[in-house]
């Protein structure tokens, strides 16, 4: 199945040059809050991708019938319903992760990326491109979370997905886990470093300096 250029851009753009986190700087709050371990980062990435893709499809199908003046309310109802479903599924099948994510699953409702994509894309495009846009933005958000979660768990607790990866002889030689990695400021710094590297590789994203 070949994708046209436009749908390709909708799917792949958010992964790189139009990334919601490191270019548009949206969804930073949850990126800082849930990334102290890799597992909740992964679950959060999947949850946001699912909610975003489905919400995009639903709103896109309803876009011609939603009265313009109450569209935000309709969007919120759709997102809230989807988030509730995701939250119940997590509670049923991944209770521990759900506890770690705590309030942030519920707060997917207020994630700026969701409202942003519904407003900017789903209201003006058909269901199939909207679906791809949702997947793309969800993954674009997700890979940042996973990278941040990877480094925070590796350097902060010496583990990945709960398994010890830094061997004992390193600790015996005097290595110690970095406690700052477990605190939110380090997540902010890691996101900043990703932005730094990304901008250095994409000169056209440089902001005008005066």
């Amino acid at each position: 199945m070949a994708l046209s250029n436009k749908t390709k851009a909708a799917l792949l753009g958010p992964l790189n040059k139009n990334n919601p986190v490191i270019v548009q700087v949206l969804g930073i709050c949850s990126a800082l809050a849930v990334t102290s371990k890799l597992e909740p980062s992964l679950v959060m990435a999947v949850a946001v991708t699912v909610v975003l893709a489905l919400a995009n499809v639903i709103i896109s199908m309803l876009r011609k019938t939603i009265p313009n003046r109450i569209r935000i309310i309709v969007q919120l109802v759709v997102i809230a319903a989807l988030v509730t479903i995701v939250s119940e599924v997590l509670k049923a099948y991944a209770y521990d992760v759900n506890k770690q994510l705590s309030v942030f699953v519920g707060l997917i409702v207020t994630n700026c990326i969701l409202m942003g994509r519904l407003e900017a894309f789903a209201l003006g495009n058909g269901p199939w491109p909207s679906f791809l846009d949702g997947i793309g933005n969800g993954l674009g958000y997700g890979w940042i979370l996973v990278v941040v979660g990877f480094f925070r768990e590796l350097l902060g607790s010496g583990e990945l997905l709960g398994y010890r990866v830094i061997p004992q002889f390193m600790y015996d030689a005097g290595y110690a886990n970095n406690g700052l990695m477990m605190l939110a400021p380090m997540a902010l710094l890691l996101v900043a470093v990703i932005i730094w590297v990304h901008r250095a590789r994409n000169r056209e994203l440089y902001e005008e300096t005066n």
Binding site: N178, G179, L180, M181
Partner: peptide, 10 residues
Amino acid sequence: AFLFFSYPTK
């Protein structure tokens, strides 16, 4: 400060 918050035991 980096040392203090990263490696409090040291």
